[in-house]
Computed example of a mutant assay.
Amino acid sequence: METPPRPSDRRALLKLYALQGSRSIAPEAPSRAPRQVVLFFMRFCNIEVRGMRPLALAVLVSLSAASAALAGPGVVVSTVAPLHMVVVELAGDRVEAKLLLGPGDSPHTYSPKPSDLAMVSRARLFLAVGLGNEVFLDEIKRVASGAKVVELAEEMLERGMFEPIRGHHHHGSHGDHGHGEGDHHDVNPHVWLSPRIGVRMVERIAELLSEIDPEGAKLYGERSRGLVERLKALDAEMSSFASSHRVSMIDVHGAFAYLARDYGFDLVGVVQETPGAEPSGKYLADLIERGRARGVNVVVVEPQLPPKLAEVLARELGARVLRLDPLGDPAKETYDGLLRRNFEAIARAVR
């Protein structure tokens, strides 16, 4: 009898599957994919293969093939929750929407698990923010050869769909995107946190879903228009609020820079120029001096990053700690709901 694989062997098998899975859906060997998948999981789950009757094995392979055939548009993987929220709202159960980062995970510090690689290897569409937002993106892209990979902020920047904010420091490198060295390396990637830019992002995601599922294009268009209308209504509310309220803020790492710019908030500085990197004492002293000179009234903290330094700054400046969430929880809210929750938190803090 075949010896069951040890835990270390299983990890190796999973990594191997992540690599093989991306190749198994390639055009040159489509008929082998179901059998490879079945055999992998039988071994992974300690199911005896050599002693199995040929008919039973054939049934399992056939079921796997039938499942793949009925999958329709297939798997759509998003790196961060806001992108996933949009996919879920536009597509519903027409696609198998998967989220890479869970609640509390930061794209600036996350390291993919073998199960993440296996999931991505099955994707038809892989959505990332890009522009250095996901430090792990190069590793993920190596197993996504069967997917259309789109770095939304990068693509939107190239199409002139938003005016970039530069001077952002990334945690690590996001590689060479082929635009000439340094062209985009310092662009702030957090475009989804401004409703104005979010409108364009939603419209683009609807187009991408239509490309992998033309039969659903009408549905994606209708649902995207509904979401866009809500985002435009939120934009109008925020513009009205900003015209009569002063918001002077220090952000923990610059995630809300586009929000501040688009609605006239004064972003005095950031606590961490590079996410996860502690600032020097001199840097903090200079930031406090600037904050006092410009009357900072809120210091932003995020649930994905340690709040201690921001809380110290708030005490020094006599400002309120403002808890904003750049990612949200797709189990509890929609994309526009996340943006509205952040807006309402700002409004409460400065009234």
Rank of each mutant, 00 (worst) to 15 (best):
P82K: 15
A293E: 12
D325P: 09
A68M: 15
A314W: 10
R159I: 01
L39D: 13
G337E: 06
G172H: 07
L227W: 00
D266S: 13
S64N: 08
G281N: 09
V86A: 07
F162R: 00
R122K: 12
A144I: 07
M85K: 07
L57N: 03
L39V: 03
L13N: 11
V228I: 09
R261N: 05
L259G: 02
T334H: 10
P279N: 04
L127T: 03
G254R: 07
P326M: 05
S64F: 04
H190A: 09
D266M: 09
A123L: 12
V300P: 00
H177R: 13
A236L: 11
A345T: 08
R315I: 02
V312N: 11
E158R: 12
S64G: 06
G269K: 10
K332R: 15
V80F: 08
V37S: 10
V120P: 01
R290L: 08
L90D: 07
P27Y: 12
V247H: 04
P279W: 12
R340F: 06
G51E: 15
A97L: 02
Q20C: 09
G198W: 06
H108W: 09
I25S: 10
D235P: 08
H190W: 07
L100E: 06
S244D: 06
L117T: 01
V301N: 00
L327V: 10
L137N: 01
K218L: 12
V135T: 11
E289C: 00
R230D: 14
M119W: 09
L57S: 01
S240F: 09
V88R: 14
G146E: 11
P164L: 15
L90A: 12
S121Q: 14
V120A: 07
C45A: 14
V268T: 07
K282S: 13
P5E: 04
K308D: 13
V95C: 12
A66G: 03
G264K: 03
S173T: 14
L338V: 10
P4T: 05
H169Q: 08
C45F: 15
L227I: 13
A153D: 00
R166N: 11
E151I: 05
P214N: 07
G264F: 03
K232E: 15
G254T: 13
G172A: 09
R32F: 06
S243N: 10
I212K: 07
G318F: 07
E134T: 11
E181F: 14
K332F: 03
F136E: 02
L100D: 11
R204E: 14
R35F: 02
R315F: 00
S210V: 13
I250L: 13
A18Q: 11
G146K: 01
G269I: 07
V86K: 06
P103R: 08
G72T: 01
P107I: 10
V191S: 02
S8F: 04
